[in-house]
Amino acid sequence: MESMESTYRSPETPRGAGVGLRLRSWLARLSIRVYLPSIAAGLAKTMEWMVRPKATLEYPEVQRVSRKGYRGEHRLKKDDQGRPNCVACFMCATACPAECIEIVAMPAPWPDRDKVPVSFRIDMLKCIYCGMCEEACPCDAIELTPTYTRVATSRDEKVYDLVKLLSN
């Protein structure tokens, strides 16, 4: 086991050590040479892992609960009358680093705002889920939800429109 020794240095006994320290140091060296204590320690460690709760989730049955502030899919919020909060100010589209938001505006039918979006499209395949749109929005209209699983069968489906975003 010479090769073992070179990689696995035994602790040296300090000079002028007392009997107790010498004995303990000798025992430490012995336990390294004999391997069994370290093997027992390893077995104890694996046993601990065996009984500890698993990190893996049983995925389809158990879904991960996203932490607070998780940035998933977007949605557009509505006010208490069911109108979208969005005033089509283009702040989010400007802030978006991925340039995935595309808004078409029209004059608002309501007196409390100037414009409303007629089309609000987010390309979810371009989106990097950074949350800048949410921060830029002056009306608290756009928001990232914790939803992160959404299946699509074509690229077009991943471009969310106004209806989809409002119902999200």
Binding site: T46, W49, M50, R52, K54, T56, E58
Partner: peptide
């Protein structure tokens, strides 16, 4: 057992 030791299912 190998899975449990490695923290898997």
């Amino acid at each position: 057992i190998s899975a449990f030791i490695q923290g898997r299912q």
